[in-house]
Design a protein around this nucleic acid. Sequence first.
RNA 1: GUCCCCAUCGUCUAGCCUGGCCUAGGACACCGGCCUUUCACGCCGGCGACAGGGGUUCAAAUCCCCUUGGGGACGCCA
Length: 497
Amino acid sequence: MTISDIKQTRVRFAPSPTGYLHLGGARTALYNWLWAKKTGGVFILRIEDTDAERSTQESVQEILDGLQWLGLDWDEGPNLQSAGLSKHVEAAHRLLESGHAYKCYCTKEELDAQRKEAEANKTAFIYDGRCRRLSADDQQRHFDNKTPYVIRFAVPREADSVVVFEDAVFGRMEKRGKDIEDFVILRSDGRPLYILSNAIDDANDCITLVIRGADGIANTPKQVLIYKALGLTPPIFAHMPLTLDNKKAKLSKRSHGEVVTISYYKKKGFIPWALCNFMALLGWSSPEGAEIFSRGELIQAFDLTRINRSNSIFNYVPGDQKNWTDPKAIHFNATYIRTMALNELLPYVKAELQGSGLWDDAYENEKKEWFEKTIDLIRARFITLKDFSERGGCYFSDDFSFDQKAVSKNMKDPGLKTYLPELAGRLAGLSEFSAERIEEVFRSYSEAKEIKAGLIINATRTTVSGTSVGPGLFEMLELMGQNRVVARMKEAVSLVP
RNA sequence: GUCCCCAUCGUCUAGCCUGGCCUAGGACACCGGCCUUUCACGCCGGCGACAGGGGUUCAAAUCCCCUUGGGGACGCCA
């Protein structure tokens, strides 16, 4: 069976709830989700919470919230790995009975000592399998003494034994039996280990394709061994290259901070799909070279065989004010804000304005048309959703701040003390407050006074918006409304030195 | 140290399997210019890479080997 034979796949995302949902995990989830959607398959969410000491409920919530925010909906779950522990234990005992596993009585201390010694000798430590060769008498003695033991998998030791698995990204992978140690599948306290639990859960969930990070490659031969020993068919694997930081180190919250967590992008005003689109391109590309994809387009274009084999770098430079995350991610977000369907953008803007106290329910009722025109006008220059509250305040409230640089640059001409109130008067007299009429006022005024139009245009922009940048002035004034504009311009004299 | 994987502009990548169409293409970032009342957008242009060395071949980014560099895995973590 190869990947192209798979019609409908059952895939899963199986994070351990020991921290935040981070970029790497989210990308893994995204690839799984994409493949499930593409094949009309099933995407299962499984929480691998068997490490009781490190697993937390907050972390589970964070993962759920993150996936939901990204729009990566799952079809089954969340299943808790801890719920299936008895099945994992039972599998370990089946392996023991069938001779595929054995009891190992070596203590942690003994093994640690051997490991240290191997390290000192600069040789590889692979458990020597001494308990596999225990005599019947020794085994009986341990049984009578109730010596604590772990269960180890008995890796085939024939000289030419190899474990083979099919990887949709890396191709056919082989590992010699002699390079795999007899790994522990059940702890001395009777709890199963990840390597076993994970494989058993995948089998029970009928997972047909495992899409996971390349750091799972080394585990794969071991898990294939478990499958085969239990008489199960292993899934196909697709190991995705890792995403590293610009020093080629693993991404972690510890060393990179919030910028690697999904929740940070929500906080910073990202459009969730823009982040997905960016993540999709970290290790995958479309044959046509397209980069902006709608959900449907990405689902259609996505293809396991075009996943890269080399690691990619998340180009984050600490301390960069403008590029607080990978510049390409910012570019994607700005592109989405600028070009996405307005009705899809509006709910995000509403949430942002509500969060900053700028929302008015009239924006969905009597001021709906005005609101939509305004958003459509100002979004062209915005990078994140935060901009709607931080830079859009002058459209929604009279309480906005003035950029001192803009004031000193555009308000320095003393003549403005008379120009602006006069202009305000002329604007007040307009019976139709449209961009065209407003422009006529400005043009004729500049001609009459023999001053450059730029002078009064820039001064007015600063007066009504507090900044030196923004949309075309006349459209802007039209949207701000006659009363508001006239009032602001009359007060403007205080800004002129 | 052992085993495994990877290697094209600063970053994301196309091309590699099936050698010639590659003077190595695109995107982001950066730098110029145009447009313009500003800033963006848009358009035009610039900068910028096949890690090194050997082979094979008429021909190598593409196939093979070595070196170097990078990453991963080596837990009674997941």
